[in-house]
Amino acid sequence: MAIDQLLKQVQTQSTVQIPAGWGQGRATFGGLLSSLMLSRLTAVLGDLMHDRVLRSATISFIGAVAPGEVELSTEIFRSGKSVTQASAKLMQNGEVLALLLANFGSARVSAIDIPATSTAPEYQAPDEAIKFAYIPGVMPEFIQQVDLRWAQGAMPFSGTAQPDFGGWMRWNDDFSSMSITHLLGLIDAWPPSVLPMLKGPGNASTLSWNIEFLSHSFNKSSKDWWQYQVTTDYAHSGYAHAVAHIWDDEKNLVAISRQVTTVFA
């Protein structure tokens, strides 16, 4: 089952079956789990969403989610004149395995207006970039769900002296309207920023993820491309700290993503 259908399911029900094909090692792809939690939360918020949009979210991956049934629950902590703070949690077999804390805000009049200081990189076109092809038994299963094109930096496990990379991304699913919920999961499809430094396969997983959205009205479909560029700020003692910027295909900065990754190598 593809991403768009899964996100639509949780808009009307609190349980969903995680299908095969979304694996990430022994766990389910965290980007899918994040999108499911956000989709459920926005559906529950309902009318509260008419004048406010997702400004930021923090996601914690607590335990491995297996294929099969998961339950989603939500809680609204406070909803004021312009800001709503709420959470969604994902449970399996009675355990909380993922948690999303979200902040929604409406636009307000302000004398402060600063344009984005991070500019989109000049990548080669997606058709000219290196396609991150799925290799069974080597790459995570969920890679079959996304189209990643490497345009900058070294590939994972290439033993380079430098981390960091960038490229183009989109879902392989076919749907007409790209929402922030779709984009949230897509952003997490890239591997941890330090994996190019490893000389061979090694495990790494996201511990916590904070993401901020600067743009909300995309007018994009699943066929449109998004640019991604990640930079490692620090890595030591088995933890890596990285920040990524995401632009649309018109070079508009749409999101800033920060992750803490555990590295088992």
Rank of each mutant, 00 (worst) to 15 (best):
N103Q: 11
F104W: 06
G105P: 09
S106A: 12
A107S: 03
R108Q: 12
S110C: 01
A111F: 12
A111K: 14
A111R: 15
D113K: 15
D113L: 09
D113Y: 14
I114M: 11
I114P: 05
P115E: 10
A116Q: 15
A116Y: 05
T117E: 13
S118P: 12
S118D: 11
T119I: 04
T119P: 03
P121E: 11
E122K: 14
Q124N: 05
A125S: 06
A125P: 01
P126D: 04
E128T: 14
E128C: 07
A129C: 03
I130S: 03
I130V: 07
K131C: 00
F132R: 11
A133K: 07
A133Y: 12
Y134H: 10
P136S: 11
P136D: 11
G137K: 02
V138Y: 15
E141D: 12
F142L: 04
I143K: 00
I143A: 02
Q145W: 12
V146F: 03
V146G: 04
D147G: 04
L148D: 02
L148Q: 14
L148N: 04
A151N: 10
A151H: 12
Q152E: 08
Q152F: 07
G153Q: 07
M155I: 08
P156E: 12
P156R: 09
P156F: 03
F157S: 06
S158P: 15
G159R: 04
T160W: 04
A161M: 08
P163K: 08
P163V: 02
F165V: 03
G166T: 04
M169H: 13
R170F: 02
R170V: 01
N172F: 01
N172V: 00
D174T: 09
F175D: 00
F175Q: 01
S176C: 05
S176I: 08
S177G: 01
M178K: 13
S179E: 15
S179V: 06
S179W: 10
I180N: 13
I180S: 08
T181S: 00
H182M: 02
G185W: 02
L186N: 08
L186Q: 04
L186P: 15
I187L: 03
W190H: 15
P191K: 10
P192N: 12
P192Q: 01
S193L: 00
S193W: 03
V194N: 07
L195M: 10
M197F: 07
M197N: 05
K199Y: 00
G200Y: 14
G200K: 06
N203H: 11
N203T: 12
A204I: 05
A204T: 12
S205D: 07
S205L: 07
L207D: 09
S208I: 03
S208Q: 15
S208P: 10
W209D: 04
N210Q: 14
L214V: 09
L214M: 11
S215G: 08
F218C: 02
N219Y: 07
N219T: 00
N219Q: 05
K220R: 14
K220S: 04
K220E: 06
S221Y: 14
K223H: 06
D224H: 11
W225K: 07
W226F: 15
Q227E: 14
Q227N: 13
Q227H: 04
